[in-house]
Computed example of a mutant assay.
Amino acid sequence: MAVRVQEADFDVGAELAALRRGKPQIGALASFVGLVRDVNDGSGVSEMTLEHYPGMTEKALKAIVDQASARWTIIDALVIHRVGRLLPTDQIVLVAVAGSHRGDVFAACQFIMDYLKTRAPFWKREVTGEGARWVDAREADDQAAERWQD
């Protein structure tokens, strides 16, 4: 189970191949890739800057992956989250989960992404035609994460 926070882009195909390499027990692999959109809340977005607390962010991501691993039967997981200046169409995040069966893999992947959006210490600043603004938490993200509460 790996988490990485980095400025550099990532190769989704290479990351997924590495995740499953040497693990013939894997029968399912689910992934999610988040991208920078060129519009948010009705305004054009020309760039986004993601900030985080080094060390604290990785610890929070690891805790989320550990929670998923405790809830579902999975073999491996990977979270890569980029920070720094990003442009529309740039990749922001990769969440990948591998396991024996699709049900656990789909659920764990969605759980990790939902919790990442609401519990990981990242801050987004967008540049729009109206100027720069910090992106507030979304109620829809909180609602998505709430469905996983026991």
Rank of each mutant, 00 (worst) to 15 (best):
G13E: 07
Q25D: 13
V33Y: 04
E139A: 15
R119Q: 14
F10R: 02
S100M: 02
F111I: 08
T89N: 10
V39K: 13
T89C: 03
A96K: 01
V127F: 04
R119W: 05
I64L: 14
T73N: 13
F10S: 08
D41L: 14
S100R: 07
G99K: 02
L50I: 07
T128A: 07
R125T: 04
A96I: 04
D11C: 04
V83S: 09
A14K: 12
E146L: 14
L29I: 07
I75Q: 08
L94I: 01
K59L: 12
L94V: 04
K59N: 10
H101P: 06
S100W: 00
E146I: 01
R20E: 06
A30E: 03
I74R: 02
A144M: 13
F106W: 12
F32G: 09
P24H: 10
A98D: 12
V135D: 12
A140M: 12
S31G: 13
V36N: 10
V135R: 13
P24C: 15
V83C: 15
T118A: 11
A132T: 13
P54S: 10
R102G: 08
G44T: 00
T57A: 15
M48H: 01
H101W: 07
I74D: 02
L35D: 08
E15F: 01
V105N: 09
T128G: 06
R125S: 05
M48W: 00
H81G: 04
R102L: 08
L78V: 11
R37D: 10
A144Y: 04
N40S: 15
A70K: 04
V135M: 15
E15P: 02
G44Y: 02
M113H: 08
A98K: 08
V95Y: 02
I64R: 04
E51F: 07
E146H: 11
V83A: 09
E58G: 14
D114T: 03
R71D: 10
A17T: 04
V36H: 00
L87S: 01
P121L: 10
I74T: 00
A17L: 11
V83P: 08
L78H: 06
A107D: 11
G129Q: 09
S43I: 05
R138F: 11
E130D: 15
A140R: 13
W123E: 09
V39I: 11
E15Y: 00
Q25M: 05
E130L: 15
G44R: 00
R71F: 08
S100N: 03
A28E: 01
E58D: 15
E58T: 13
T89H: 02
V95W: 07
E47R: 11
D90T: 03
E139S: 14
A120M: 01
D136R: 14
E47Q: 12
I92N: 08
L50R: 00
D104Q: 03
I64G: 06
R82P: 00
L87I: 01
